[in-house]
Amino acid sequence: MTGPSGVGIGWRPEIAGFVAELPGLRFVEVVAESVPAKGPLPSGLAQLRERAVTVVPHGVRLSLGGAEPVDPARVAHLAAVAQRVDAPLVSEHIAFVRAGGLEAGHLLPLPRSREAVDVVCANVARAQAELPVPLALEPIAALVDWPDDELDEADFLTEILDRTGALLLLDVANVYANARNRGTDPLTLLDRLPLDRVAYAHVAGGAEHGGYYHDTHTDPVPPPVLELVGALCARRRPPALLLERDGGYPPAAALRSELDALAATAGFPAVT
């Protein structure tokens, strides 16, 4: 169980055949909630494990930023999946996905307040106590900001990482999306984040809708996101870069060229 290295791709059933045929692939991520805790692994995933490809379970429903304590059953599932795929680490988001008995359906941002920092740190500690491997935390892309932020993004994230000892899963496309939608400079954030704590980085495509840049994961990676990957690598290259694609799957050649572009930008070996 080696840590993530080089260029990887988010494993999804729809592209399992494509992923299986990438000759140089050493690293994939899988949505943890899509892997059963018992019974057979999805077949493509089992084959990757036989090739000793590193598999990192990526949780999306833990709601570590929810004001209620994190659900122990969800943590147990993530822990079980980590063991099943012999993962070197798992990852989740600094976000909440449900409140007041309602599911939001996706990751929602927290207020950047001291209270929210306390809530996240308490939930992360609860999760870490049950997980067999380290946890990496991913800051999200948010279209909406809370009205009463006390901390800026860098201070908010750094405080959570310092207090929990968690690793950072840095999503370059999220950094780009937030900066563009807030009218700030993404490089300023990169310069203030603890880049030595990055376990791996996400890269994804997005598109403009209604005046906002949306981190859709269903569109091509736009040139400015790739440039930001270059800027990140120039500061401190993360051990691994992972391409996330969740729908609108393009022909294999297009996905291969996105993976090649990531490898070229970061100076990693091509996996295609």
């Binding site: 409140a99 309602l102 599911e103 929602l108 207020p111 809530v119």
Partner: peptide, 11 residues
Amino acid sequence: RLAERQAELVA
């Protein structure tokens, strides 16, 4: 009030 405010936002 975080729980309450998160519930208001989701609703």
